[in-house]
Design a protein around this nucleic acid. Sequence first.
DNA 1: TCTGGGGTCCTAGGACCC
DNA 2: TCTGGGGTCCTAGGACCC
Length: 419
Amino acid sequence: MPSEGPTILHADLDAFYASVEQLLDPTLRGRPVAVGGGPRGGVVLAASYEAKAFGVQGGMAGWRAAKLCPELRFVRGHFDEYQRLGDAVIAVFEDFTPLVERISIDEAFLDVSGSVHLFGSPAQIGAMVRERVRDQIGLPISVGAARTKHLAKIASQVAKPDGIVIVQPGREREFLDPLPVGLIWGVGPVNEKRLADLGVRTIGELALTPSSAVEHILGYAVGHKLSAMAHDDDPRRVATSHRARSVGAQSAIGRRTPEPAEVRAVLAHLADRVARRLRAKHRAGRTVTVRVRFAGIRVVTRSHTLAEPNAATLTLTEVAERLVWSAIADSPDEPEITLLAVSVSNLTDQTTIQPELDLAPSDPWRPGSATGAARRAVDGSMDAIRARFGGEAVGYLPAVRRTGAGVPDEFRELAEHDL
DNA sequence: TCTGGGGTCCTAGGACCC
DNA sequence: TCTGGGGTCCTAGGACCC
């Protein structure tokens, strides 16, 4: 039941991390800036628009970015500032409507249908939001306004950088038709290529293509969604909160042949990060999934579902360890690994203390030594010590030696979703 | 001289049950 | 005993997003 006007706004800070660096250090303004990485290693986490003009992109290796743009200034990130300023921007949004759906640190949907009599039209609200974020916080932000979330998001992408685009009801078709399909949420490089092979490059062309043909190429769900989207049929509403469905952690470990002690140490560290977050929110999960990336690019996943939800560091470590070795054993032609990941899904709330979280004695995945009660006691003590003395005060194993390739923990925290 | 880290959703096959 | 049909759960892989 879409409302009359373009009452959904999508607001998206422009090149957020890089813009913050330019705000903090005036000598960076107007210049190509990369956060993270560096010419001798690491990965670019974000690039300013001046850097993007040279082809520098997030995720790119630092040496490659430096090659594309010799003037590029590499800066280490001020991750605490990103969190603070991102929160401040969201607070500005909330001055205009309580219906704010934050998608990430730098991006949100706003439903302003109830705000128009207070602040004026959605177009005026969008302009006021931009003005306040620029004047009070000092950051450029783009805004799209439309009748639906999907359309508002496309509009904000078109508005970038530092602009605003309003899609008036009734004029959706003329706005959408000439745009490339890659602007649709859910169409990445692979699906864009598949559509191009069908001769479909614009959203208008997509709208003229039978949905059965699109579903045949992209699978039912994606195809169906895209066809609906191309016809501007998008019922999604702004939702102010979500529950996470999985929690994970990963670590790029360079290129190395797996050694038992090292694998164990990395997995213990990853499982501990996951388990701590679960316990902090009184949640637990049944399915443990590991991912192993081999040097040959190939990625393998292995998972195991426990009979009962679990949030014990030691148990998750042990299950992950078995899964990783089974993945390695199944890939005898791949002697080296480059990344390990652990995630837990099938999450449930642990509103009451579980009487018994141990695996059944007959379960071949039953862990060794300590009982479930002992494990919970250890975890409880660790959590308490960390709460008092900080996260690094105690650990289950000697800290994994970092070879310098990893990103800072503050960056990990920025990427974490609320549980 | 190969691209970090944290997520979501979908598909397809197999096991198992009724 | 063979055949059919539907539903749920689990596992592995993949595309995509920020």
